[in-house]
Simulated assay, not measured.
Amino acid sequence: MSRLQIIVASTRPGRVGLPIGQWVEAVAEKHGGFDEIDLSDLGAIDLPLMDEPHHPRLRQYTQQHTKDWAARVDAADAFVFVLAEYNHSYTAGVKNAIDYLNSEWGYKPAGLVTYGGVSGGLRAGQALKPVLQLLKVVPLAEQVTIPFVQQFLTDGAFVPNELIETSATTMLDELGRWAQALHTLRAS
């Protein structure tokens, strides 16, 4: 059984990350490479700024929201981060969500779906990769980049072009391969 967790990083009111995350979820369901898909909207999860007294590597969580978040991340075999680019980087919400945990992230692949203006959110993805690598997450080269994201929104829904659709399928193919390959490391 394999589980994909899609993490919508933006928490700002009026964000476009949620419609993009919902599109990724629909593409992943159609793709069929994962048995379960968990759409994790950080705006709805609403983790407070790190409020745990112990270092996350100890897994001695005291807050129920941390225990719930840890269970969701721990259950995942692969991740897709849906990232907005804010000021040439990723959002504070996703950094906070990542920093809550430690070992739950390890030995799992991550695909990135980045969006923004002219750069398509690429700088957010590039800034996040070293953070993920430190936690033993394997960021894939295959990713989805969405420049000038507003052009793909129709009545609040994300409507991609063929290139974006193809990029998502390629990323999901690779996520499945890497999740399977890294399973041995997670089991040990």
Score class of each variant (00 low, 15 high):
60 Q>H: 13
132 L>T: 03
73 V>L: 11
49 L>I: 09
98 I>D: 02
61 Y>W: 10
26 A>W: 01
180 Q>T: 15
156 G>L: 08
30 K>E: 09
70 A>R: 08
108 K>C: 11
177 R>G: 02
162 E>P: 01
145 T>N: 15
21 G>H: 07
55 H>C: 00
101 L>I: 00
91 T>F: 10
3 R>C: 15
186 R>E: 03
174 E>F: 12
106 G>F: 07
61 Y>P: 00
43 G>V: 12
5 Q>A: 14
51 D>M: 02
141 A>H: 07
70 A>D: 13
173 D>I: 10
41 D>N: 15
111 G>F: 05
54 H>Y: 13
7 I>D: 07
101 L>N: 01
74 D>Q: 14
178 W>I: 10
8 V>W: 08
106 G>Q: 15
89 S>H: 08
84 A>K: 08
139 P>W: 03
40 S>H: 09
67 K>A: 08
32 G>S: 10
151 Q>A: 12
120 G>K: 06
94 V>Q: 02
159 V>L: 04
116 G>W: 06
158 F>W: 08
46 D>K: 11
28 A>K: 12
88 H>M: 13
86 Y>N: 13
20 I>P: 02
164 I>V: 12
166 T>S: 09
108 K>W: 11
163 L>M: 09
100 Y>S: 01
133 Q>R: 13
149 V>D: 05
157 A>W: 02
43 G>K: 03
165 E>W: 03
154 T>A: 08
155 D>H: 11
187 A>S: 13
84 A>F: 02
115 Y>F: 15
110 A>G: 05
139 P>G: 03
1 M>L: 14
43 G>A: 04
61 Y>N: 01
132 L>W: 08
97 A>I: 10
43 G>L: 03
48 P>A: 01
149 V>S: 14
110 A>Y: 07
106 G>K: 15
23 W>L: 01
136 K>G: 00
73 V>R: 04
164 I>P: 01
22 Q>S: 07
80 V>C: 10
6 I>F: 10
65 H>R: 12
8 V>A: 07
70 A>P: 07
19 P>Y: 09
138 V>D: 06
168 A>F: 05
48 P>I: 00
30 K>M: 07
183 H>A: 14
59 R>G: 01
108 K>M: 11
139 P>Q: 02
78 A>L: 11
12 R>I: 14
44 A>C: 00
